[in-house]
Design a protein around this nucleic acid. Structure first.
Lengths: 236, 236
DNA sequence: GCCTCCCGACAGGCTCAGCCACTTGGCCAC
DNA sequence: GTGGCCAAGTGGCTGAGCCTGTCGGGAGGC
C-alpha cells in the first residue's frame, strides 16, 4: 500500500479557483446570504476563463455551500465555503482512532435499533452471515467475509437510512482494521463467539444487551488495532 | 414556512447529464475500473456542449465516483454512479426519526469522549455555554442559543474530527427539533437542569455518567418532537 | 528476435467569443 | 398606486480551437 508510486496528477484549475473563493469569502468576512462577485468579474480577477469559474461554482453548488440563481447571482448558503469532505477525514491513517470512535458510536446504536426493529427477513440475513462466518472459521479461515456481511445485515436491520449512510462513509477503514484484527492468532473463534452474542440479543429483541455485546466487540477490535498502530511510522 | 411560493428553478443541464451518465452506467452494466466514453463522444451523443459534459464529470469527480486522467480517459471508481448525498437523507421531514436516532448515537459517544478528553479550555467553553443558557432561561427566554453552544462545546471537547463531521451534517434538523422542544411550556428550566448534569459528569471525567445524562437528554427532546410529528400532514 | 525510442492518434484541460434566458429596478402610461 | 415595459446585469450554454498528457505501434538499433 505504498503511496510513493501513485501517478502524480496536476491540480485541476477549478480546484484552485475553489480555494481562492474560500479565501475570498474568509477575507471579506462574507456571511450566509451574501452575494459572490459575478462570474465575469471573477474570471477577470483570477485570470481564468469563465468556464473554469463555472466548474468551481458547480462544485460548491453540489456541496450545498452556494445557491446559484439564474440571472440573479450566486449567494452563500453558509458562513464559510469549507466543507471538509469525509474522505479527507477518513483516508489518512492518522485518523484511525477517530474512525474507531465513530464505529463504536454508530454500531452500538445500530445494534440497539436492530434488536427493536428487525424483521424475520433481517434475522435470516444475520443468521446467514453468522453461518458463513462459522463455516469459514471451521475451515481455519479468518471469517472476514462473514464478519463483514454480519455487520451489513445488522445495519440493514436497524432500518435507519442516516446511520447506514454514515457507516458507508467509514466502510473501508473498518474493513482494514477487521482484517488486521482477525489476523491475530486465536482471534477468529472468539470473534465468532462475540458475534453470536450480538445476534442472540438482537433475536431476543433485547436492545440493551445488543448494545453491550456490540460495544464489547468493537472495543476488542479497537484494542487490537491500536496496539499495532504507530502514528509516526505508519507502514501498512 | 410555506413551500408553495418557492421560486421555481429549472434543472441545470449538467444535472440531466449526470442522470444520463448514471443511466448509461447501469444500462451497460459498467463496473469499477471501466472507462466512460470520451467527452467529445458524450457531447455529441447527448446533444450538449463539451463544457456541460465537463461540469457533470466534475460533479462525479468531487463525489469520488469517477477518476479522471488527463489524456487517459475517465474511469469508474465504483460499480454505480449513485452517491446519495446526505442532504437527500436529511432534508425530508419524513426522515426526522432517523435524524434523532443518529443524534442519539453520536452525542452519547461525544459526551463519553468529552468526559475522557476535555481540556481545561474545553470545560471553560462548556461552562460559558451553560452560563449563557442559564441567563437566557432566567430572563424567561428559551435558552436556544446557549443550548446550541453547549452541544457544540461538547462536540469540540470530544476531540473527534469524524464525529464532529457527522454532527455537522445533521445540524439543521437538530436545531429545528431543539426549537420545537424548547417551546414546550416549562421545558427550558428542565432542559437547563439536564445540561447541568451532563456538564457535571464531563467535569468529573465520568464517561458512563456523561453517556447516561446525554442519552436521557436526547431521549427527552426526541419524545417531544415525535409527539408533534405527523408523517402524513407535515405542515412545518 | 528483442528492445528502445519516437511519433501520431486520441484523451482531457482550458480559453475565447458570443448568444440566450432570467432577474431586477427604474420609468412611464394609465 | 398599479401594471407594463425596457435595459442592464447575471448566470446558462454553445462551438471552435489550441494545449498538454497518455498510450500503443512501428521504425530502427542491437
Amino acid at each position: 500500500m505504498s503511496d510513493a508510486l501513485r501517478p502524480l496528477t496536476r491540480p485541476r484549475l477549478y480546484e484552485q479557483v475553489v480555494a481562492q473563493l474560500r479565501e475570498h469569502v474568509a477575507d471579506q468576512g462574507l456571511k450566509a446570504g451574501d452575494r459572490l462577485p459575478p462570474e465575469r468579474e471573477l474570471a477577470e480577477r483570477l485570470g481564468v476563463s469563465r468556464a473554469s469559474i463555472k466548474q468551481a461554482i458547480v462544485v460548491l453548488e453540489v456541496q450545498g455551500l452556494v445557491d446559484v440563481r439564474h440571472g440573479g447571482g450566486t449567494y452563500l448558503r453558509k458562513d464559510t465555503l469549507h466543507s471538509e469532505p469525509v474522505e479527507h477525514l477518513v483516508d489518512r491513517r492518522r485518523r484511525l482512532p477517530d474512525v474507531l470512535d465513530a464505529r463504536d458510536a454508530l454500531e452500538t446504536k445500530l445494534a440497539a435499533l436492530a434488536a427493536q426493529r428487525r424483521t424475520p427477513e433481517d434475522l435470516a440475513a444475520i443468521d446467514a452471515a453468522l453461518a458463513e462466518m462459522r463455516a469459514q472459521v471451521d475451515r481455519g479461515e479468518s471469517g472476514e467475509d462473514g464478519d463483514r456481511r454480519f455487520h451489513e445485515a445488522v445495519t440493514v436491520a436497524a432500518h435507519s437510512g442516516l446511520l447506514a449512510h454514515f457507516m458507508r462513509q467509514i466502510t473501508e477503514p473498518i474493513a482494514e482494521s477487521r482484517r488486521e484484527s482477525l489476523r491475530q492468532p486465536g482471534r477468529p473463534p472468539r470473534s465468532l463467539a462475540q458475534h453470536e452474542r450480538i445476534a442472540d440479543a438482537i433475536r431476543a429483541g433485547d436492545a440493551r444487551a445488543a448494545m453491550r455485546a456490540m460495544h464489547r466487540h468493537v472495543e476488542t477490535v479497537s484494542r487490537v488495532r491500536l496496539l499495532n498502530w504507530d502514528p509516526e511510522n505508519e507502514a501498512g
